[in-house]
Nucleic acid binder design. Structure first.
Lengths: 330, 330
DNA sequence: GTGAAAGCGCTAACAG
DNA sequence: CTGTTAGCGCTTTCAC
């Protein structure tokens, strides 16, 4: 597997390395005959340009890094798939970096430039840089959250929370519980925004979200299960529960069922995400499309890489309520 | 963000570039005082080595590529997380390549060397190379499947299928249905092996898996849902169903419930994976740990990268049956 | 349309 | 312990 170099191809084709370089990259200024000869030689030798050499010489890396807070969630996987799809189409490599602990997140958030040495551009999932100044030579896009300084693509989380709340309110519920994400959610405003949306909906009918009707489920199924158990143990349990992710909602359903309640008869549950199992399990939920967000973000990056400059752009993904069988009139 | 080069750091620290190179990489043969001075200068200048230059000069890329058949499944996400964790610990980048269509899979499977130009090593998820010859200079590890030619780490799928089958048989079931993966599963033997395990268990009590008790669910929740509906529409529906993934099992549960059946009373269901929601939803399943597989595979790669040579090694992950509430005596 | 030559920024002997 | 000196393989002016 010794590397076949451009020199060998040049020699075999009887041309200079410069010509080989042009020919294999499809650049102009190569006669059809020469190009054919070069391509043939390259093929016979199984020549593959060394990406590192190319990038070094060309002054760019051909790699974009995607930094994610966690890798094994439905949301992350979807977003990655979306990013990967458009990047692959552009011949760019996707490198994934996990920022699992908050110290590594802090580091990237305050100094995204650290990653600049490893790639041409950066996509941040649910993370927004604080002190970093935009630099036209190092495009950064924020997916899943909003940023004033960088390109970003996100959903309207307040609206998402609101439609969930309105749905519940519309069904006559006034005592609604909230299963929020993680308490130490410092870098994403998601929990906060969705909560605000819910509160707005409740306020519309003169109800407020009680302090002790909020529990945290850490965006996991198990977390949602435990959170629901807590909720049900309260003196005056809610008649409806809004979980900020489908995983948590499903856990909540389980808890309610085990407690002998039937859904939606005894308690209504709304989730957020619309991941595949939600359909299958009949969960009413606020649907979003993280793969679409990722794809849109990657596209913005590509534009920047192609020289597009200008003010930070902002795109928004859709959210909509999908009514299934986990909610009902009280 | 013009690149700060090693020369500038060298000049500022009053040493040669070679010394800077050693110092920043933590190599020996640099006096503490000098190292300190260099690091300081580097810090002030915000120097970051150009990865492409480093890789080119060093003759290696510091990148390993992981090729996956799909990116947005629980299994893949878990495996990626495992790989990423150990690679990150070794300062190696993880680049992900999606091989979504079978032609791209074909290409990689028959010529993994194509990816060799982009990385130091390759981890293949559920894909095993056919014609490619191992090359000590380009380590390849297969995760999730077995290979004679390469290092591999997998689970005993036959055993997994067997314990699921034995569990069902032990509960008195003899008419069991199978929800298998995708029909066009050419490159992974997973479906085949688990099926064989089930058949062995059934054979133990003189029963055989009937042809028309097998349907395909494409490893998705929706697929499992539809597959279960098919199964239930048959003349003599099974009293127990083994789904080759939890996603499909959960879909199957939904289908059965909708059909007015209660689980496990009317029909028992066993899944495979033990992903988080399975616990939450009380699914009896064959547990496996793809993150562990990924981590083990990455470790093997690291060993190879450090010069370990020798025959292909083979590691196995555990599988075990977790009994919950979706199965019962007939 | 094609070639010669000068690097891209860094690492790795080899001296000292 | 530190500096010198070749390249790594490719791209890119600038001549021809």
């Amino acid at each position: 597997m010794r590397r076949v170099t451009i020199d060998e191809v040049a020699e075999r084709a009887g041309v200079s390395v410069a010509t080989v370089s042009r020919a294999v990259r499809g650049l102009p200024n190569v006669s059809p005959a020469t190009r054919k000869r070069v391509l043939q030689a390259a093929g016979e030798l199984k020549y593959r340009p060394d990406p590192n050499a190319s990038r070094l010489a060309a002054g760019k890396s051909g790699v974009v890094i995607m930094a994610v807070p966690t890798i094994s969630s439905w949301y992350t996987a979807q977003a990655m798939a979306g990013v990967e799809a458009v990047l692959q189409g552009a011949g760019i490599e996707l490198s994934v970096t996990l920022l699992s602990d908050s110290s590594s997140r802090d580091r990237v958030v305050s100094e995204p430039g650290l990653l600049a040495s490893r790639a041409d551009a950066l996509v941040l999932l649910d993370l927004v840089p604080t002190t970093f100044e935009p630099d036209s030579r190092f495009p950064v896009v924020v997916v899943g959250d909003h940023s004033d300084a960088f390109d970003s693509v996100s959903i309207d989380n307040v609206h998402g929370g609101r439609i969930a709340g309105e749905h519940l309110v519309g069904l006559g519920h006034s005592r609604v519980g909230l299963i929020a994400g993680a308490e130490e959610d410092k870098f994403t405003a998601v929990t906060m925004l969705r909560t605000r949306g819910l509160e707005e909906a409740l306020a519309g009918v003169g109800v407020s979200l009680e302090e002790n009707a909020v529990v945290f489920g850490h965006y996991s199924g198990l977390g949602g299960y435990e959170a629901m158990n807590e909720l049900l143990a309260r003196p005056n349990p809610p008649t409806a529960v809004f979980a900020l992710s489908d995983d948590m909602a499903l856990g909540a359903i389980r808890a309610a069922t085990e407690a002998g309640m039937s859904i939606p008869h005894d308690v209504s549950i709304v989730g957020f995400d619309d991941h595949e199992l939600s359909f299958v399990l009949g969960l009413t939920t606020v649907a979003q499309d993280p793969a679409g967000l990722g794809a849109a973000g990657a596209q913005m990056l590509l534009d920047r890489l192609e020289g597009h400059s200008g003010a930070p752009r902002e795109a928004h993904g859709e959210v909509r309520l999908i009514e299934r069988s986990s909610t009902a009139r009280i």
